[in-house]
């Protein structure tokens, strides 16, 4: 083991098809269909994927969807705004849990 999060692993993603080829095939088909042009453009879908990649903090996905977003014609301003959307939701999600804290504190307090 050379370490976690090796960039050479990204092009080896297909090896996840070994030992469970049917599941891999289903995943692949569904994944491909998700990113087809639809009610949302491929460019919009890539920006969503880029934002989600940051939210789930997946370095492989950040790498892949940074490149994909550029190749769909997005620019750094748009991509940075997408990351801010992810960050705002993550920040807001943490903050809104403060109400849980307040509820608990209130319940415990005289």
């Amino acid at each position: 083991m050379s370490g976690y999060y090796n960039e050479d692993d990204l092009p080896r993603f297909g090896e996840m098809g070994k030992n469970a080829p049917e599941l891999w095939e289903k995943f692949n088909e569904w994944y491909g269909a998700v990113f087809q042009e639809g009610a949302l453009s491929q460019r919009e879908k890539c920006l969503i994927a880029l934002a989600v990649a940051h939210a789930v903090q997946c370095p492989y996905c950040i790498d892949a969807y940074t490149q994909e977003s550029l190749e769909k014609g997005s620019n750094l301003e748009q991509m940075t705004e997408a990351v801010h959307v992810a960050a705002a939701i993550k920040g807001g999600a943490a903050l809104v849990h403060g109400l849980q804290m307040r509820n608990t504190a209130e319940a415990l307090s005289m």
Partner: peptide, 17 residues
């Protein structure tokens, strides 16, 4: 042409931009 090591976007999409 792309300003880096990535492929160009679909012609119609970037032309509209």
């Amino acid at each position: 042409n792309p300003t880096g090591a990535f492929l160009p976007p679909p012609q119609q999409a970037i032309e509209a931009d």
